[in-house]
């Protein structure tokens, strides 16, 4: 069974080894918005006074991403530095989608992205965004994103039919994503 998490909920999750030691804490999630795959995590130390930890955790070193912890095999899973994280953040469209606007190919602004919804498990995938609707002021919508047309720092452009598959909550998002997937298959 898959679980759906907001990026917000993954932030501050502990990074725990299979030996039961907590070695770091998730500071932020870096993902590839075009493919929807997670690239890596930036980290901070554990404890109240711990600052940022200048070591990245690459997705390929993660054992599993769950609702309560990011699991790694052992302490060797962390990179020696945060070079990898910085490179993916600096890559085009690799940075921040939160705060970006979501627009359809035919030029309608759907809203502002406030969070990213991730399907967890062995191969997590970004399945959609939490968006504050522009048309219905202040209303929060969940929009599935399968293949965005393009992504920049200001905007995520999606196929026009995306607007037909919004969900009112996270629970409804998988069904909306499935509907969008079928529609996109029909159109191609």
């Amino acid at each position: 069974m898959s679980t759906y998490l907001r990026a917000r909920e993954i932030r501050e999750e502990p990074v725990v080894t299979l030996a039961g030691e907590d070695i770091a804490q998730v500071k932020d999630i870096v993902f590839d918005p075009m493919r929807g795959t997670l690239t890596c995590f930036t980290l901070s130390g554990r404890g109240l006074l711990a600052g940022p930890l200048k070591r990245a955790l690459l997705w390929k070193k993660v054992h599993a991403l769950g609702p309560d912890a990011v699991m790694v095999r052992d302490g060797k899973a962390l990179e020696e530095d945060d070079q990898a994280a910085r490179e993916s953040i600096d890559a085009p469209g690799g940075g921040h989608v939160i705060g970006a606007r979501m627009m359809t190919e035919d030029g309608t602004v759907l809203g502002t992205i406030t969070d990213v919804i991730i399907e967890t498990g062995k191969a997590p995938q970004v399945i959609g965004y939490e968006v504050v609707s522009t048309a219905q002021t202040g209303r929060t919508l969940f929009l599935p994103v399968i293949k965005p047309s393009s992504v920049s720092e200001e905007m995520v452009v999606v196929p026009a039919c995306t607007a037909d598959f919004s969900a009112g909550d996270v629970v409804g998002l998988p069904a909306a994503a499935e509907g969008l997937r079928r529609r996109l298959e029909q159109e191609t």
Binding site: V16, H63, A64, P67, V70, M71
Partner: peptide, 17 residues
């Protein structure tokens, strides 16, 4: 004593408590 299990959370290897 860090290997004493009493009172500790149980995490499934998939990251779920």
């Amino acid at each position: 004593r860090s290997h004493d299990p009493l009172g500790k959370p149980v995490l499934v290897e998939t990251g779920e408590c």
